[in-house]
Protein backbone atom coordinates (compact mmCIF):
# COMPACT_ATOMS: atom_id res chain seq x y z
CA UNK A 1 0.00 0.00 0.00
CA UNK A 2 2.09 2.92 -1.29
CA UNK A 3 -0.50 5.51 -0.39
CA UNK A 4 -0.93 4.51 3.22
CA UNK A 5 2.79 4.25 3.82
CA UNK A 6 3.36 7.70 2.28
CA UNK A 7 0.49 9.09 4.33
CA UNK A 8 1.80 7.73 7.59
CA UNK A 9 5.36 8.85 6.89
CA UNK A 10 4.36 12.39 5.94
CA UNK A 11 2.03 12.79 8.91
CA UNK A 12 4.64 11.43 11.30
CA UNK A 13 7.45 13.63 9.96
CA UNK A 14 5.28 16.73 10.11
CA UNK A 15 4.16 15.94 13.65
CA UNK A 16 7.84 15.62 14.64
CA UNK A 17 8.57 19.00 13.03
CA UNK A 18 5.96 20.60 15.27
CA UNK A 19 6.49 18.65 18.48
CA UNK A 20 10.30 18.63 18.67
CA UNK A 21 10.86 22.41 18.64
CA UNK A 22 8.02 22.89 21.15
CA UNK A 23 9.40 20.27 23.53
CA UNK A 24 12.93 21.62 23.18
CA UNK A 25 11.65 25.10 24.05
CA UNK A 26 9.59 23.94 27.01
CA UNK A 27 12.37 21.74 28.38
CA UNK A 28 14.86 24.54 27.71
CA UNK A 29 13.11 26.86 30.14
CA UNK A 30 14.38 24.61 32.97
CA UNK A 31 17.98 24.45 31.74
CA UNK A 32 21.04 26.64 31.91
CA UNK A 33 22.59 27.78 28.65
CA UNK A 34 25.33 25.20 29.07
CA UNK A 35 22.88 22.36 29.62
CA UNK A 36 20.84 23.43 26.60
CA UNK A 37 23.88 23.59 24.33
CA UNK A 38 25.35 20.28 25.50
CA UNK A 39 22.08 18.38 25.15
CA UNK A 40 19.37 20.38 23.36
CA UNK A 41 17.08 17.36 22.96
CA UNK A 42 17.51 16.05 26.51
CA UNK A 43 15.09 16.47 29.36
CA UNK A 44 16.02 18.88 32.16
CA UNK A 45 17.69 17.51 35.32
CA UNK A 46 15.25 19.23 37.62
CA UNK A 47 12.29 21.60 37.33
CA UNK A 48 13.99 24.75 38.57
CA UNK A 49 11.99 27.98 38.14
CA UNK A 50 15.03 30.28 38.14
CA UNK A 51 14.55 31.32 34.50
CA UNK A 52 10.91 32.12 35.14
CA UNK A 53 11.74 34.22 38.17
CA UNK A 54 14.33 36.11 36.17
CA UNK A 55 12.16 36.93 33.13
CA UNK A 56 9.13 37.86 35.19
CA UNK A 57 11.08 40.03 37.59
CA UNK A 58 14.24 41.55 36.17
CA UNK A 59 13.26 40.81 32.57
CA UNK A 60 10.07 42.86 33.05
CA UNK A 61 7.75 40.28 31.54
CA UNK A 62 5.53 40.34 34.63
CA UNK A 63 4.51 43.94 34.01
CA UNK A 64 4.29 43.34 30.27
CA UNK A 65 2.01 40.37 30.90
CA UNK A 66 -0.28 42.58 32.97
CA UNK A 67 -0.31 45.29 30.28
CA UNK A 68 -1.12 42.75 27.56
CA UNK A 69 -3.92 41.31 29.68
CA UNK A 70 -5.45 44.74 30.32
CA UNK A 71 -5.25 45.81 26.68
CA UNK A 72 -6.65 42.53 25.34
CA UNK A 73 -9.39 42.31 27.97
CA UNK A 74 -10.62 45.76 26.91
CA UNK A 75 -10.05 45.74 23.17
CA UNK A 76 -11.66 42.37 22.36
CA UNK A 77 -15.09 43.10 23.92
CA UNK A 78 -15.15 46.67 22.60
CA UNK A 79 -14.34 45.53 19.06
CA UNK A 80 -16.98 42.82 19.33
CA UNK A 81 -19.60 45.23 20.60
CA UNK A 82 -18.97 48.06 18.14
CA UNK A 83 -18.49 45.57 15.30
CA UNK A 84 -21.61 43.56 16.03
CA UNK A 85 -23.72 46.72 16.30
CA UNK A 86 -22.47 47.80 12.88
CA UNK A 87 -22.96 44.34 11.38
CA UNK A 88 -26.50 44.20 12.70
CA UNK A 89 -27.29 47.61 11.22
CA UNK A 90 -25.71 46.64 7.90
CA UNK A 91 -27.65 43.38 7.76
CA UNK A 92 -30.94 45.13 8.36
CA UNK A 93 -30.67 48.49 6.57
CA UNK A 94 -32.37 47.94 3.24
CA UNK A 95 -31.12 49.05 -0.14
CA UNK A 96 -27.83 50.55 -1.15
CA UNK A 97 -27.08 52.43 2.10
CA UNK A 98 -26.34 49.18 3.93
CA UNK A 99 -24.13 47.97 1.09
CA UNK A 100 -22.31 51.27 1.00
CA UNK A 101 -21.55 51.23 4.73
CA UNK A 102 -20.41 47.61 4.49
CA UNK A 103 -18.22 48.22 1.45
CA UNK A 104 -16.65 51.30 3.01
CA UNK A 105 -15.71 49.57 6.27
CA UNK A 106 -14.60 46.30 4.72
CA UNK A 107 -12.40 48.18 2.24
CA UNK A 108 -10.15 48.78 5.26
CA UNK A 109 -9.08 45.13 5.06
CA UNK A 110 -7.24 45.92 1.85
CA UNK A 111 -5.14 48.61 3.52
CA UNK A 112 -1.93 47.19 4.99
CA UNK A 113 -1.06 48.46 8.47
CA UNK A 114 2.17 50.02 7.25
CA UNK A 115 0.20 52.21 4.86
CA UNK A 116 -1.50 54.36 7.46
CA UNK A 117 0.52 53.77 10.63
CA UNK A 118 2.54 56.98 10.30
CA UNK A 119 -0.42 59.39 10.14
CA UNK A 120 -2.04 57.30 12.88
CA UNK A 121 1.02 57.76 15.04
CA UNK A 122 0.91 61.53 14.46
CA UNK A 123 -2.79 61.66 15.33
CA UNK A 124 -2.39 59.57 18.48
CA UNK A 125 0.60 61.63 19.52
CA UNK A 126 -1.38 64.86 19.17
CA UNK A 127 -4.20 63.35 21.25
CA UNK A 128 -1.77 62.23 23.96
CA UNK A 129 -2.56 58.58 23.27
CA UNK A 130 0.98 57.36 22.70
CA UNK A 131 2.62 55.72 25.72
CA UNK A 132 -0.86 54.87 26.87
CA UNK A 133 -2.69 51.57 27.22
CA UNK A 134 -5.93 53.36 26.27
CA UNK A 135 -4.28 54.35 23.01
CA UNK A 136 -3.39 50.70 22.35
CA UNK A 137 -6.96 49.61 23.05
CA UNK A 138 -8.26 52.27 20.66
CA UNK A 139 -5.89 51.35 17.82
CA UNK A 140 -6.65 47.63 18.28
CA UNK A 141 -10.37 48.34 18.01
CA UNK A 142 -9.94 50.55 14.96
CA UNK A 143 -7.67 48.30 12.91
CA UNK A 144 -9.62 45.10 13.56
CA UNK A 145 -13.08 46.63 13.02
CA UNK A 146 -13.09 45.94 9.25
CA UNK A 147 -12.36 42.23 9.63
CA UNK A 148 -14.72 41.88 12.60
CA UNK A 149 -17.53 43.51 10.63
CA UNK A 150 -16.69 41.27 7.67
CA UNK A 151 -16.90 38.07 9.73
CA UNK A 152 -19.99 39.03 11.71
CA UNK A 153 -21.97 40.45 8.80
CA UNK A 154 -21.27 37.23 6.90
CA UNK A 155 -22.83 35.36 9.78
CA UNK A 156 -25.80 37.68 10.32
CA UNK A 157 -26.74 37.39 6.65
CA UNK A 158 -27.30 33.68 7.21
CA UNK A 159 -30.03 34.46 9.77
CA UNK A 160 -33.34 34.19 7.91
CA UNK A 161 -35.13 37.49 7.36
CA UNK A 162 -38.30 36.08 8.92
CA UNK A 163 -36.68 36.24 12.33
CA UNK A 164 -36.21 40.00 12.00
CA UNK A 165 -39.70 40.40 10.62
CA UNK A 166 -41.29 38.31 13.34
CA UNK A 167 -39.69 40.45 16.04
CA UNK A 168 -40.61 43.73 14.37
CA UNK A 169 -44.22 42.57 14.06
CA UNK A 170 -43.97 41.91 17.78
CA UNK A 171 -43.46 45.64 18.03
CA UNK A 172 -40.02 45.42 19.60
CA UNK A 173 -37.56 48.03 18.35
CA UNK A 174 -34.19 47.28 16.76
CA UNK A 175 -32.29 47.50 20.04
CA UNK A 176 -34.55 44.90 21.70
CA UNK A 177 -34.17 42.63 18.68
CA UNK A 178 -30.40 43.03 18.76
CA UNK A 179 -30.15 42.34 22.46
CA UNK A 180 -32.63 39.58 23.01
CA UNK A 181 -32.70 37.80 19.64
CA UNK A 182 -29.61 38.49 17.56
CA UNK A 183 -26.94 38.38 20.27
CA UNK A 184 -28.08 35.00 21.65
CA UNK A 185 -28.49 33.60 18.13
CA UNK A 186 -25.01 34.66 17.07
CA UNK A 187 -23.14 33.41 20.13
CA UNK A 188 -21.10 30.86 18.12
CA UNK A 189 -19.99 33.45 15.59
CA UNK A 190 -19.30 36.00 18.33
CA UNK A 191 -17.18 33.41 20.14
CA UNK A 192 -15.23 32.60 16.99
CA UNK A 193 -14.69 36.30 16.27
CA UNK A 194 -13.67 36.90 19.89
CA UNK A 195 -11.01 34.20 19.68
CA UNK A 196 -9.74 35.58 16.39
CA UNK A 197 -9.46 39.05 17.96
CA UNK A 198 -7.86 37.63 21.11
CA UNK A 199 -5.06 36.04 19.07
CA UNK A 200 -4.50 39.24 17.04
CA UNK A 201 -4.60 41.67 19.96
CA UNK A 202 -2.56 39.51 22.32
CA UNK A 203 0.17 38.89 19.74
CA UNK A 204 0.26 42.33 18.15
CA UNK A 205 3.74 43.78 17.84
CA UNK A 206 3.45 46.69 15.41
CA UNK A 207 1.32 49.18 17.34
CA UNK A 208 2.95 48.82 20.76
CA UNK A 209 6.29 49.10 18.97
CA UNK A 210 5.12 52.36 17.38
CA UNK A 211 3.21 53.88 20.27
CA UNK A 212 5.02 52.76 23.42
CA UNK A 213 8.42 54.02 24.53
CA UNK A 214 7.99 53.89 28.32
CA UNK A 215 9.31 50.53 29.56
CA UNK A 216 6.48 50.24 32.10
CA UNK A 217 3.81 50.33 29.36
CA UNK A 218 5.27 47.68 27.08
CA UNK A 219 3.14 44.70 26.13
CA UNK A 220 4.46 41.13 25.87
CA UNK A 221 5.52 40.98 22.20
CA UNK A 222 7.51 44.23 22.47
CA UNK A 223 9.09 43.25 25.78
CA UNK A 224 9.96 39.88 24.27
CA UNK A 225 11.46 41.50 21.17
CA UNK A 226 13.71 43.66 23.35
CA UNK A 227 15.08 40.44 24.91
CA UNK A 228 16.77 39.88 21.60
CA UNK A 229 19.31 42.59 22.29
CA UNK A 230 19.40 42.14 26.04
CA UNK A 231 19.98 38.41 26.36
CA UNK A 232 21.31 37.85 22.84
CA UNK A 233 22.07 34.12 22.90
CA UNK A 234 20.76 33.24 26.33
CA UNK A 235 18.29 30.88 24.74
CA UNK A 236 16.85 29.48 28.00
CA UNK A 237 15.74 32.99 28.94
CA UNK A 238 14.35 33.66 25.45
CA UNK A 239 12.48 30.36 25.62
CA UNK A 240 11.06 31.20 29.03
CA UNK A 241 9.82 34.48 27.56
CA UNK A 242 8.23 32.58 24.69
CA UNK A 243 6.45 30.21 27.09
CA UNK A 244 5.19 33.05 29.30
CA UNK A 245 3.92 35.00 26.29
CA UNK A 246 2.24 31.97 24.70
CA UNK A 247 0.82 30.25 27.77
CA UNK A 248 -2.59 32.01 27.92
CA UNK A 249 -3.27 31.42 24.23
CA UNK A 250 -2.14 27.80 24.25
CA UNK A 251 -4.20 27.03 27.37
CA UNK A 252 -7.25 28.67 25.78
CA UNK A 253 -6.57 26.70 22.59
CA UNK A 254 -6.65 23.39 24.45
CA UNK A 255 -10.14 24.11 25.75
CA UNK A 256 -11.69 26.16 22.92
CA UNK A 257 -10.03 24.56 19.94
CA UNK A 258 -13.03 24.57 17.62
CA UNK A 259 -13.59 28.31 18.11
CA UNK A 260 -9.94 29.00 17.33
CA UNK A 261 -10.16 27.04 14.11
CA UNK A 262 -13.50 28.60 13.11
CA UNK A 263 -12.45 32.14 14.00
CA UNK A 264 -9.01 32.10 12.44
CA UNK A 265 -10.34 30.39 9.33
CA UNK A 266 -13.09 32.99 8.95
CA UNK A 267 -10.50 35.71 9.42
CA UNK A 268 -8.02 34.23 6.97
CA UNK A 269 -10.54 33.87 4.20
CA UNK A 270 -10.21 37.57 3.57
CA UNK A 271 -7.76 38.69 6.26
Amino acid sequence: MGFNLTRRTVLFVYAVLIIVPMVVVLAGTFKTTQQLFSSPFGLPDKLDGANYRQVLGQGGLGGAFRNSAIVTACSVPITLFVGSLASYGIARIRGWVGHLIYGFIVLGMAVPAQANMIPQYVLFDVLGLTNSLIGLVLINVVVTLPIAVFIMTGFLKTIPGEIYEATSIDGSGPWRTYRSVILPLSTPSLAATAIFLFVIHWNDLLYPLLFIQEPGKKTLPVALLSFQGEFLTDYPLLFTGVVVASAPIVVAYVFLQRYFVAGITAGSVKG
Binding site: I90, R92, I93
Partner: peptide, 12 residues
Protein backbone atom coordinates in the same frame (compact mmCIF):
# COMPACT_ATOMS: atom_id res chain seq x y z
CA UNK B 1 -31.21 51.19 12.65
CA UNK B 2 -29.03 53.91 11.17
CA UNK B 3 -27.64 54.54 14.65
CA UNK B 4 -26.16 51.03 14.89
CA UNK B 5 -23.25 51.43 12.47
CA UNK B 6 -22.56 54.93 13.77
CA UNK B 7 -19.94 54.18 16.49
CA UNK B 8 -18.01 51.96 14.08
CA UNK B 9 -18.21 54.56 11.32
CA UNK B 10 -17.00 57.39 13.55
CA UNK B 11 -14.03 55.39 14.86
CA UNK B 12 -13.21 54.10 11.40
Amino acid sequence: LFLFPLPALVLY
